[in-house]
Design a protein around this nucleic acid. Structure first.
Length: 792
DNA sequence: GAGTTTGAAACT
DNA sequence: CAGTTTCAAACTC
């Protein structure tokens, strides 16, 4: 099998990821540590398709993110035609695994490492990587070990690119070539192997990367997940189980991943902490799955809490500080989400031993830290922007076309190095990371879902001391605002956290700094997109919360909340920096509001941050939803503080309980409350409200149907008009139109009846409705004539 | 749309 | 913590 040269090995971070816990463990349980399992353990090994026959692997990366497969020592790199530093660019839906087989023993010489000469994109959504030429090295591969054929082995990945174009990479034959004789001399090919797994669950592609990455294949369920895994293994067994892996998992579709490999330690709606073993392989995984998120594990704990649990959405956040001595390597990969998933990416950086990275970097291509923002739209994921970070740039903004504010602010750790490493890009080879990225120690990367659809929220972590970076995505007006202030006073009282609140453990010296995000700031995200954030050690970040969380707050159904845009505020004196302002209270910037002297915007960020802090000082849970779920669920929802109504009887929207459509409870201090279960007044009101809502819906449906019918008639009669002398309006009154019109009239009658309107009024309303129907019919008729003139 | 009412938020 | 003031939404006309 492929061998990693010692030098390369030394350059590689000791640990990148532990994939086992996350993704691929089942598929290749013992792969890193032990000799390859018997063939039968591998999923359908024998039946690998032609293209996939070669077990060796290719590295892939989403198009937006660059992945580097290069080994520094060897200079072998995969580059895309665009010059980006990644081996493969895919739409982001594929996963790649690169691993060095456990079998490999002999190091490859750096010199001999080939470069990928070409990438080919066949027509079939497959990624093919070919070796440029046959290499002598191939010969030495042990049986059973998949080896790329000299003539060019191909790796096919279905659905690699959204564009539908497969990418082919040609690997120089030398890749698999054993290095110059290094110790083993057994002649076994030592090229690094990369396995790709097809969506079907079979390993599809193997590509050897110049880097000493070991690849393990993973079986994934069809169409759901792709995984990238990079494993570094010491060339010689003596090294022990140090494995570095990079795993990127991505769900191809909205369905939850079924493959264990894809399952990350993060459970939907919450982030779990994963502890690393003593010799911890460190794993960073990036995954997109509807309900799952990959998490990276690190020595320190980090917890994101998202009480809300809609399976389809998830909150991700894991922040882990790294053990001081572990080399940094973290990769964040924003992937495009096809499905409104939320992804959390975590970035870890090592506090120490940047040297490694630096060294490796030297040979590696200039991989600038990249910042990437991914925006996932409904069904259509979009990659947004990759912004190369300059060294000092602490703050950056990504402006999404059409969006006004969308941004995310990234904060670098105060304790850490000066720069935040924002690379959304994926470095398959951790060693490649620039030295400055190493400095990211304290930085925590997070992904925040952004609403792609209509509302976008932004989370702005507060910059504690250093620069921040801003990433913006999506186009919608709303955005999440994260209190940027440092909030030491907030302790990680997990039990008391509002839904969606995220605590990010500060990285670094072991001190755990926590930042609390007002839950509302992260809620109301109908269609999550992704944004990666970097936060400082003491500061934190936000976790995406699904819409539902917020909905539960105000008692609105999900559909209601998501469909209903926030009302514009009308603040005049508060500068929209007090909780009087609904926008502010909900963690949003004012947008399209009618407010005067508004400071709730990016132009007054400092003021806004102060205001947020002030609010939190007054009330640490100021941004916490007031309506929480009761013990017994939905029916038991109640206001956290209770209302204090005196005159409204708690049956008007003045009352927060009533407004939230919940009953007043014992904690309310209201007077003359009529908002209780048995209250006849309340029942009457609720009944009326429901009836009104139903009427509106029915009427809307009827009108829609009428329009449809008329339109249909229009379509059918058009030929007659064009061919002959035209039609009189009455000819448009077909049976269907008449029926629908009657429906409208009946609906109007029902409304009048429900409203207890006198008969005369009812008749009037019906006639008026009839008039409207007629006008529509006439309008369509006239339009038909206009559109299809007789002589025309 | 102007004016009033209301209760939460802010302030003392 | 209680009382008062401020504020913006809800409501009425």
């Amino acid at each position: 099998m492929d061998v990693v040269s010692p030098e390369l090995n030394s350059l590689l971070p000791d640990e990148i990821m532990d994939t086992e816990a996350i993704a691929m463990e089942e598929d290749l349980p013992a792969e890193h540590l032990a000799p390859p399992p018997p063939p039968q353990s591998e999923p359908e090994p024998a039946q690998v398709p032609m293209e996939t026959e070669v077990p060796e692997i290719v590295s892939l990366c989403p198009a937006t993110t660059s992945m580097q497969m290069t080994s520094t020592s060897t200079n072998a790199q995969c580059s895309t035609s665009t010059g980006t530093q990644l081996l493969l660019a895919s739409s982001g839906l594929m996963a790649v695994t690169t691993t060095t087989p456990a079998k490999t023993t002999s190091p490859a010489s750096a010199q001999n490492l080939p470069k990928i000469s070409s990438v080919t994109v066949p027509a079939n959504h497959q990624l093919i990587i070919n070796k440029v030429a046959s290499s002598p090295a191939a010969d030495g591969k042990p049986p059973g070990a998949a080896v790329l054929k000299p003539e060019g082995q191909k790796l096919l990945v279905a659905g690699l690119s959204k564009t539908g174009q497969p990418i082919m990479l040609a690997l120089p034959h030398t890749w698999n070539k054993p290095a110059t004789t290094q110790g083993t001399g057994d002649g076994k090919a030592q090229a690094t192997q990369i396995k790709m797994v097809t969506a079907v669950g079979k390993p599809v592609i193997a590509v050897s990367s110049a880097s000493q990455l070991m690849g393990s294949s993973t079986t994934l369920q069809a169409q759901q997940l792709k995984t990238l895994q990079i494993t570094k293994k010491p060339p010689v067994s003596t090294a022990g189980p140090m494995i570095t892996k990079l795993i990127i998992t991505k769900a191809l579709n909205s369905k939850a991943l079924t493959s264990p490999a894809s399952v990350s330690p993060v459970v939907t709606g919450r982030v779990l902490t994963q502890s690393t073993p003593v010799t911890p392989p460190r794993t960073i995984s990036i995954g997109e799955a509807i309900s799952t998120v990959t998490q990276n594990t690190s020595g320190n704990s980090k917890v994101a809490i998202s009480p809300l649990k809609s399976p389809s959405k998830l909150t991700v956040v894991s922040v882990a500080s790294q053990s001081p001595n572990s080399p940094q390597k973290s990769v964040t990969l924003p992937l495009n989400m096809a499905l409104g998933q939320q992804i959390l990416t975590v970035q870890q950086s090592a506090t120490t031993s940047p040297a490694k990275a630096g060294t490796s970097q030297s040979t590696a291509q200039a991989a600038k830290p990249m910042q990437t923002v991914t925006v996932g739209g409904m069904g259509t994921s979009q990659f947004k922007t990759i912004i190369p970070l300059t060294t000092p740039p602490n703050v950056q903004q990504i402006q999404v076309p059409g969006s006004r504010f969308h941004y995310v602010r990234l904060v670098t750790a105060t304790t850490g190095s000066g720069t935040a490493h924002t690379g959304a890009s994926i470095n398959t080879n951790p060693s490649i990371q620039p030295a400055k990225s190493v400095m990211m120690n304290a930085a925590v990367r997070m992904s925040v879902p952004i609403v792609s659809a209509q509302t976008v929220k932004q989370v702005v972590p507060k910059p504690l001391t250093s620069a921040a970076q801003v990433v913006t995505t999506s186009q919608t007006p709303q955005r999440l605002i994260m209190p940027a202030t440092h909030l030491p006073q907030i302790q990680p009282n997990l039990t008391n956290l509002p839904p969606g609140t995220v605590l990010a453990p500060a990285h670094g010296s072991g001190n755990m700094g926590y930042a609390v995000l007002p839950a509302p700031y992260v809620t109301q995200i109908p269609q999550p997109a992704f944004v990666t954030l970097t936060s400082s050690s003491t500061f934190s970040t936000a976790t995406p919360i699904q819409t539902q969380a917020r909905l539960s707050l105000n008692g609105l159904s999900t559909s209601e909340a998501t469909s209903r845009p926030r009302k514009p505020c009308n603040c005049t004196r508060s500068q929209c920096l007090k909780l009087y302002c609904d926008c502010f209270a909900n963690g949003e910037f004012c947008n399209n509001c009618n407010c005067v002297n508004c400071f709730n915007n990016l132009d007054h960020e400092s003021e806004r941050l102060k205001a947020i802090k002030a609010c939190l000082d007054r009330n640490p849970v100021a941004f916490k939803p007031k309506i929480g779920k009761g013990k017994q669920g939905e029916s038991d929802r109640r206001h956290s503080k209770g209302c204090n109504c005196k005159k409204s009887g708690c049956l008007k929207n003045y009352c927060e309980c009533y407004e939230a459509k919940i009953m007043c409870s014992s904690i309310c201090k209201c007077m003359g409350c009529k908002n209780f279960e048995e209250s006849p007044e309340r029942k009457t009101l609720m009944h009326l409200a429901d009836a009104a809502e139903v009427r509106v819906q029915q009427q809307t449906a009827a009108k829609t149907k009428l329009s449809s019918q008329i339109s249909d008639v229009h379509t059918r009669t058009t030929p007659a008009l064009t061919s002959g002398g035209g039609k009189l309006p009455y000819t448009f009154v077909t049976k269907e139109v008449a029926e629908v019109t009657c429906d409208c009239l009946l609906e109007q009658a029902e409304q009048a009846e429900l409203a207890n309107q006198p008969q005369a009024m009812a008749e009037r309303l019906i006639l008026e409705e009839f008039g409207r129907c007629l006008r529509r019919i006439i309008s369509f008729a006239g339009k038909a004539k206009t559109d299809c003139p007789i002589n025309g």
